[in-house]
Each structure stands twice: as structure tokens, then as C-alpha cells.
Amino acid sequence: MKKKESTLINMVAAMLLITLIAGFSLGFVNELTLEPIAKSKLDQKVNALKLVLPVFDNNPVAAMILLKVENVKDSVEVYPAFLNDAFVGAAVIGTSEKGFSGLIKLMIGFKPDGTIQNIAVLEQKETPGLGTKIKDAAFINQYRDKNLAIFNAKVKKDGGEIDGLTGATITTRAFSEATQMAYDEFIKDTAFISKSKN
């Protein structure tokens, strides 16, 4: 086949055709993947909730409430959990911007009395191999089943009871700060959260 000449009409027609085909096929794939993308995002959230909360049978994502806090920029997300209509705890998003490389975002699951059930790390940009150890079970286990009313969640260096990570004291501090923030929020509004069944 002979190669098309580079006349203006040929060039415009070729580009137009390619752009159209590309646009339509992308639109098509976008339609196909829209639902799976939304589903996988939801799955991620639900998996984190299952990890940090006691057994529940409601839909905490649908029951999510936003609480306005004074010294935090955005509202705090709270996911209340219920089993047979009884309040079994809530997951609170705790954040700290004092991480070594900025924002650390955690999901902390509390039992109704404020004891920590478990913690999941949602977002962090800490140094790989040092600060990223906050995701390890060995570190998170220090917080599990502790009630911050009687447990000082600060790093040992700051007079608390948490073993800081070697070479990542700043990260550990931010982690404790985020946990403390979530705890304060949970305790302040437990009464409201426990009645927020949808």
C-alpha cells in the first residue's frame, strides 16, 4: 500500500480519526472499569474496618459520621459499628502532619469503653525500612487492648510507655499523636456516636 501524502486534508483527517477512535475506546473502557474501581475502593475501606473493629453486622461505611473538631483542618470521619443493634465500637480516622515526611493517616478501632481494638495505617510517606515499620504488627501490638485513659501512649523518650522505632522517633511520635487525637474525639462524643445507628 502506498503511504498517504502529507497534505493538509490527509493530516487533519488522520488525526481526527485517531483521536475519535481513542476517545471512544477510552470512554468504553472507562464505563467498564467505573464500577470495579468504586468497588475496590470500598473493599479497601471495609477490609480496614474489619481489621480494626470488633465483629459487627451493620454497614459502618453507610453509617459514617463527620465530626467537626477545633484544631484539625478537616472533619474527622467516624465509623460506628453495631452487632444485633448493640453498639460495639467505632473506627476513628486519626491524622498527624508531624510525620517525618508529612501526613500520617490511621484508622483506629475503639471498643465502647475507649479501649483500642486495633490500628490500621491508611496513608504514610515515611522512610522505607525505618518509619514504615509503624505498619508492622510488632509495633501496633503495643497499642492493642490499651485504654489511653490509663495508658500513656507517648514514646518512652517523652515519658510514655511506647517503645519508639529505632531511627524513627519522629514517625513514632506522629503515630502516637494521631492515636491520641482519635481517642480524644471518640471519648468526647461516645454518647453521640453510639446512638448514630442508621
Binding site: 500500500m1 503511504k3 493530516m11 488522520a14 485517531i18 481513542a22 473502557v29
Partner: peptide
């Protein structure tokens, strides 16, 4: 053979960018 040679680079870029976007979505 359908692409006039003067616009071949932008044409190739569109083709590549489309497949990249597909990979991204998938």
C-alpha cells in the same frame, strides 16, 4: 501507511496514551 508522515509522532503519542490510560484504569 494511513498516517501522513508529518503528523506521525502526535498520532503515535495518542495511540500510546490510549493504551496507557487503559492500563491505568484496569
Amino acid at each position: 501507511n494511513q498516517i501522513p508522515s508529518k503528523v506521525r509522532i502526535p498520532a503515535f503519542i495518542i495511540v500510546i496514551a490510549s493504551f496507557v490510560t487503559i492500563v491505568e484504569m484496569v
